[in-house]
């Protein structure tokens, strides 16, 4: 990323592809992610979307909140559907368009992983964006594979989740696709540049995993969406990086943190009710994991 010219708030396009007045919750992190990603993709884009909060955000028949053609598809099939869109665009001479799958963490790392893995293995010419709000939010906050350990959800109501978060971007990276990146709703300019870059790398599968705070599911007041998203990154819990043709590099705020002090992860946990039952032991365990991970990062 450092070699590329970075987008600033002043150079970021004013054009809005998402209409206001949609049904997303107040303070929805996905609202920021979706709005920003679509700015980067532009109008020559076709979307495939499985059931998720985005289905609701996108509008109920007959009104759509997005000024893009979109096919809503079944939960497990997003990447396969994007494959089908691409195949048909090639077959009908419209191959210049972006094909973008936009799915939640459950639709990506749980039920959708088979189709996604298949598409990555085939190297389908698609961009897959996963907005990770770390649980099944649209159905009322049930645990998902990407819910962090210790989190209270409606299906882990007493003990909290017993397992660690599934590292979906690493699983996808193991397919050897051209581009894997992580981003955060709290850093829209970093996200914008990554989506732009993904769009420019036509030909193979490109995957972007976006950490997306959810006020209602995580238990915080809606004004803190960006604040908490930033804490996720500055504590070193969720890192901003990209893997371009196998080359890993931290980007943005994460890159700046290498060799510097990070915010203790406890500060992040304290901001959200979903971590209310976290023991000191687990907090320490998580901090230990973050420290071990960061010991491997060099400037």
């Amino acid at each position: 990323m450092d070699n590329d010219k970075k987008t600033t708030v002043l150079t970021l396009t004013d054009e809005e592809i998402v209409n206001p007045g949609n049904r997303a919750c107040s303070g929805c992190g996905l609202g920021i992610v979706y709005r920003t990603a679509l700015k980067a993709l532009g109008k020559d884009t076709v979307l495939a979307v499985p059931p998720s909060c985005l289905t609701v955000l996108q509008g109920l028949y007959p009104v759509a909140s997005t000024k893009l053609p979109c096919v809503n598809v079944t939960f497990a099939s997003t990447a396969a559907a994007a494959t089908g869109v691409r195949a048909a665009l090639r077959a009908t001479g419209r191959d210049h368009l972006n094909v973008v799958a936009f799915a939640g963490d459950g639709g990506t790392g749980d039920i959708g992983i088979q189709a996604l893995s298949g598409a990555c293995e085939r190297g389908e010419d698609i961009i897959y964006i996963c907005y990770d709000n770390e649980a099944y939010m649209n159905t009322g906050v049930q645990r998902s594979g990407t819910t962090p350990k210790g989190v209270m959800t409606t299906t882990t109501p007493i003990k909290g989740k017993l397992q660690h978060k599934k590292d979906v971007p690493s699983i996808i990276a193991a397919h050897g696709i051209d581009y894997v990146a992580t981003a955060s709703a709290a850093y829209p300019l970093d996200l914008y540049d990554k989506v732009k870059k993904a769009a420019s790398m036509k030909g193979g599968t490109r995957y972007i995993h976006v950490h997306t705070p959810c006020p209602s599911g995580w238990g915080f007041a809606p004004q803190y969406t960006v604040h908490i998203g930033k804490l996720g990154v500055t504590t070193g819990l969720f890192d901003l990086y990209e893997i371009v043709k196998g080359e890993f590099s931290l980007t943005g705020e994460s890159a700046k943190r290498v060799g510097k002090e990070r915010t203790p992860v406890e500060e992040y946990f304290k901001t959200q009710r979903r971590f209310r039952s976290l023991s000191q032991e687990l907090t320490d365990e998580m901090q230990g994991m973050i420290d071990a991970k960061w010991a491997n990062y060099t400037a």
């Binding site: 007045g21 509008g59 028949y61 009104v63 759509a64 000024k67």
Partner: peptide, 18 residues
Amino acid sequence: ISVSEPGPGDGGNTGSWR
């Protein structure tokens, strides 16, 4: 068929949520 047209305010005047 269920084919939607883009427009604002699918959720109504969401300013009323405020």
